[in-house]
Amino acid sequence: MAELLKPDLYAQDGTTSAPKHPSLKGGKCAHCGFVFFPLQAYGCEVCGQSGDCLQPFALAGSGTLIASAKVHAYTPDAKAVAADVKPLEAPFVIGTIKLDDGPTIRTLVTDVDETTLKRGQRMMSKLVPVGTGARTIVDLRFIPAS
């Protein structure tokens, strides 16, 4: 069984609308209906309600590309790299994606020729191995939908 690098942000299980793609751990405000990512208990960013109003809400790992950028210059923060995890190396691609369930996120995009990425491209979530040792550690990425 693979270990999730950031289990507070995503889960292996998909949702009804995207059952084969890992879901993102978002939240929904029971008072105003605002859907947000990541899940937090501080308070609703729209209506300010807190406490039980903020409920976990699994967001489908599917969305639409708004923008992308290939990053050529990047120095990882050594303190931020988790044990047994391969540090991120440039070049890599970042995408701005509007999730089908509402929130807009910015995330690493993989398995892509960035020159072909266009606004409106359908994107799906995927877990990819990022471990260096014996442990199988996976992290979330988005890929173009085939």
């Binding site: 950031k6 942000l9 950028a69 990047y74 690493l108």
Partner: peptide
């Protein structure tokens, strides 16, 4: 709170994304 990729998004990447969106 943690984030998916904020540590990989320097200011210039934030604006490179805006540039791509505008250009398209």
């Amino acid at each position: 709170l943690s984030s998916l990729a904020n540590d990989a998004i320097a200011f210039f990447t934030h604006y490179a994304l805006l540039m791509d969106q505008y250009a398209q």
